[in-house]
Design a protein around this nucleic acid. Structure first.
Length: 190
DNA sequence: CACAGGATATACT
DNA sequence: GTATATCCTGTGA
């Protein structure tokens, strides 16, 4: 298992995104395998960084290899990984995990038995791991975060992104093929 | 399936 | 200032 550090994120989001499928994300020892994510780049009208820096998205403009945590619909927290180059706001939205560690802790936080739904969505995942706005801007290669690559890359399916109204034509959603822990099903478009 | 919940940002008057 | 949209989810029809 390789520890994924700053150098891993020092590349284009579109290279990084598919390589993160199958990686293990832990937060304070709780987490699992990434099975779903989406890429957002700085020329992307659907991305928060597209219209420039604000108080909410400032950590998107910070150094790569750090977390960008934002509040969605005033209710949920969502976790992104900031990618190179610094200062233009490229990031990967983590959308779903397959729970492997600390499952009992996640069940308590989510008040939910069903393992399949513990981390099946960006807001659910943050609730299960206990990630909030306090953790915005933290480095991913240091505690409480832990991020490890996998040795054998899983089969990947790409498709259009979810929950956006702009740039819906680009297939920048990546999923582990056949995973039952996805936030929603995917119809492979390419 | 529809829709409320409610912070943050932008686009209006 | 008000109105509308948003990288979502739980609940109830």
């Amino acid at each position: 298992m390789t520890q994924l550090g700053t150098d891993f994120f020092a590349r284009s989001v579109h290279e990084i995104a598919p390589e993160l499928i199958g990686a293990t994300l832990l937060f304070d020892g709780v987490g699992g395998v990434i099975v779903e994510l989406e890429a957002y780049d700085h020329e992307d009208p659907a991305a928060h960084g597209y219209r420039g820096r604000t108080k909410r998205n400032k950590s998107m403009f910070g150094p790569p290899g750090h977390a960008y945590v934002y509040r969605s619909y005033g209710v949920h927290w969502c976790l992104n990984f900031v990618c190179e180059p610094e200062g233009v706001a490229n990031a990967v939205l983590i959308r779903a995990l397959e729970p492997t560690q600390g499952i009992d802790a996640m069940r308590v936080r989510r008040a939910l038995e069903d393992e399949r739904l513990l981390c099946a969505g960006p807001g659910r995942l943050c609730q299960a791991l206990g990630i909030t706005g306090e953790h915005d801007g933290l480095p991913l290669d240091r505690a409480p975060f832990e991020l490890r690559g996998c040795e054998t890359a899983p089969e990947i399916v790409r498709g259009p992104r979810i929950g956006i109204s702009k740039a819906t034509d680009v297939p920048w959603r990546y999923c582990a093929r056949g995973s039952r822990f996805l936030s929603r099903g995917i119809r492979s478009s390419l």
